[in-house]
Design a binder for these strands. Structure first.
Length: 97
DNA sequence: AAGCTGACTCGCT
DNA sequence: GAGCGAGCCAGCT
């Protein structure tokens, strides 16, 4: 189960997201210029354990399915702006505001 | 090679 | 705001 070249590029990018900032799955795909949100999600599910996976959230600001609690806890600790159960994308999106 | 799968999105009701 | 359907893309069977 080794990461494909595509997977490695996804992981590399995620690794560069600063603390307190987040990117949507769709953002990662767009910045890489390849793949799509679902493909990124699949990569994170399989190889995300080694990178700041909590900094990759859904387009509406909700954390990765199945890890809501953990992600929210970490994001809050890093200073990401939370709006209840989701991240305030307008404020915490990397490259945003 | 055709079909299925999912840490996803977006437009429409 | 919540549900739903259709589109999307790499990877696996």
């Amino acid at each position: 189960m080794l990461p494909s070249p595509f997977a490695e590029r996804v992981l590399d990018l995620v690794d560069t997201i600063p603390p307190g900032r987040v990117l949507a799955y769709s953002d990662v795909a767009a910045m890489l210029g390849e793949g799509g949100p679902r493909a990124v999600g699949t990569v994170m599910a399989r190889f995300g354990s080694g990178v700041p996976w909590h900094r990759v959230v859904r387009a509406d600001g909700r954390p990765a399915a199945g890890h809501e609690q953990e992600a929210l806890r970490r994001l809050e600790a890093e200073g990401a702006v939370l709006r209840g159960t989701r991240v305030d994308m307008a404020r915490s999106r990397w490259g945003g505001r």
